Computed example of a mutant assay.
Amino acid sequence: MFAIVAPGQGAQTPGMLSGWLRDPAHAERLRHWSGAADLDLVHLGTRASAAAIARTENAQPLLVAHGLLAHEALARAVPEGAAVVAGHSVGELTAAVYAGVLTSTDAIRLAAVRGRAMGAACDAEPTSMAAVVGGSELDVLDRLAELDLTAATFNGTGQIVAAGPADGIQRLAAAPPRGATVKPLPVAGAFHTPFMEPARQAVAAAAAATRFDRPRQLLLSNADGAVLTSPEEIRQRLVDQVVRPVRWDLCLRALARMQPGLALSLPPARTLANILKRQYPGIAVVPVNVPRDLAKAAARLEADTGKGEPAHAGA
């Protein structure tokens, strides 16, 4: 059994698609996806500045596109029912493609709608986010409640991302919870909180017009780590996660129960690969960052195929 994980916003770096676009097939896919996103993904992935690709409306479709450039090569090497797939925040759209729920074009289109809508919601009032590292979870959550902040992301490995009004984030940084450090994040606003309700409505309208199929691989929800099988439930959860916390910690617990022998961390791979390695050193993690990593990842998948039973929801 294999795991495939897809990163969320914040993993992007300038020029991250340059190596991929040397392959004409990848370049053609990205031009097609640029039309679906109504964005120049080629420019964003090669020549755009760090500030430009950090913008929410650019970062989200760009990250989904990066993860999906690996899809064709890897999908051939993963038999149906042999993988469990999970995505962090917008990476859940990438994961839905690997699970067979969405087409790549539809995932890019939804990511573009999501990014633009969340960016617009951020402009409505001053909000922000900060990573809280260390301390006890109870102390951290109590401190966030005192400041009227939301725990927007539980990343595991002792990290919670707080979100809410910008002045609350400033007060959190000035007086962290006991035993914790606080690092304000360079994001446009309070993602995965009720401040994103206008964006949720926009994503809901776009998702309603999009075909969702029954998954061919196990798909974990980043709301609670549950395995999803119903296309309608997957659609609703992808919509609702815009305003709900990301429980990556629960996805990690689900993976630990399922005990995959190998985990592929999709590009940009570093953040999630490092989390997996720290939390579950027994899982072999293969990061996929550049095109040459595809052959290595596919070979590992093919070598391990048949060594274990197919994935199943009761694991």
Score class of each variant (00 low, 15 high):
1 M>Q: 06
15 G>Y: 08
16 M>W: 02
16 M>L: 13
23 D>N: 14
23 D>I: 10
25 A>E: 05
28 E>G: 09
29 R>M: 14
30 L>W: 03
33 W>R: 00
35 G>E: 10
39 L>W: 01
41 L>R: 00
51 A>D: 15
52 A>V: 07
54 A>W: 00
62 L>I: 11
63 L>G: 00
65 A>M: 02
71 H>I: 12
71 H>M: 06
73 A>Y: 01
75 A>L: 07
93 L>Y: 14
93 L>P: 11
102 L>R: 03
102 L>E: 06
102 L>Q: 05
105 T>N: 05
107 A>E: 05
107 A>T: 11
108 I>K: 01
109 R>F: 06
109 R>W: 05
110 L>R: 03
111 A>N: 08
113 V>C: 02
113 V>A: 00
114 R>N: 04
122 C>N: 04
122 C>V: 05
125 E>C: 07
125 E>G: 05
125 E>W: 03
127 T>A: 09
134 G>Y: 04
136 S>T: 15
137 E>L: 11
140 V>D: 09
141 L>I: 10
141 L>S: 05
144 L>W: 03
147 L>F: 06
151 A>E: 11
153 T>A: 14
153 T>W: 02
167 D>L: 11
169 I>N: 01
172 L>G: 13
175 A>H: 14
176 P>W: 06
191 F>S: 11
192 H>P: 14
194 P>E: 09
195 F>I: 06
204 A>C: 06
206 A>T: 10
212 F>A: 06
216 R>P: 08
220 L>K: 05
221 S>N: 10
221 S>L: 12
227 V>F: 01
231 P>H: 01
233 E>M: 13
233 E>C: 08
236 Q>N: 09
236 Q>A: 14
237 R>M: 11
237 R>A: 11
241 Q>N: 07
242 V>C: 02
242 V>S: 01
245 P>E: 07
251 C>K: 00
252 L>P: 07
253 R>V: 14
254 A>F: 04
255 L>Y: 04
259 Q>E: 15
259 Q>H: 10
268 P>S: 08
271 T>Y: 08
272 L>I: 15
274 N>L: 14
277 K>H: 08
285 V>A: 02
291 P>G: 10
295 A>M: 03
296 K>V: 15
299 A>R: 06
302 E>R: 09
302 E>F: 01
302 E>Y: 00
304 D>N: 12
314 G>V: 09
315 A>V: 12
315 A>S: 12
